[in-house]
């Protein structure tokens, strides 16, 4: 048995680093193939009787920076979050905000009326309202019992 120098809290700090790394991997969405981290805009989806409403957090983006498409019941939001050009003469102490291109697709569980989709972008939240088509809405059917 070899003697080792006692390092106070050594194991604990290793565990902490390990856990931090694990959480970082989850929070920052790494591209498994390229290893490059991507932006993964957080989204909420609410379904009501008549429609779906998707709200996506895209702080600092303008309407022109975002593209929304619908194809075969697949709603795709893509765009690029750019670093402000006026930051050039600044030295950064901390950069927690993420920048770069993003791409997210949502498969809708039922057909929506593509002609009536509404998108609204306010305070960094992109809200998309997708009305369901008539035949997809739940209907009450009266069944007479004999």
């Amino acid at each position: 048995m070899t003697l080792m120098k006692w390092r106070h809290m050594r194991d604990l700090s290793t565990i902490q680093d390990e856990i931090n790394r694990m959480f970082d991997d989850c929070v920052v969405n790494h591209d498994r193939e390229t290893g490059i981290s991507k932006i993964y805009p957080a989204s909420d989806i609410v379904e009501s009787k008549d429609s779906f409403e998707i709200s996506i957090e895209l702080p600092g983006l303008k309407k022109e920076d975002v593209k929304v498409t619908l194809q075969n019941n697949m709603l795709t939001i893509s765009g690029e979050k750019k670093v402000e050009s006026e930051s050039k003469d600044h030295t950064f102490h901390r950069v927690e905000r993420t920048y770069g291109s993003f791409y997210r697709s949502f498969e809708l569980p039922m057909p929506v009326d593509s002609g009536k989709i509404q998108a609204d972008f306010k305070d960094g939240i992109l809200k998309i309202g997708l009305p369901k088509v008539e035949e997809a809405k739940p209907k009450e059917i009266a069944i007479s019992i004999k």
Binding site: D89, H93, T98
Partner: peptide
Amino acid sequence: WKENSSFAWPDVDIAENDNEYKFSFEIPGT
């Protein structure tokens, strides 16, 4: 948590030049 972990929220960029400090926080939908 250590402050540099992923748990500090909301995300902020802190920049400095000769004349000023500039903080920019992402607080969408607030």
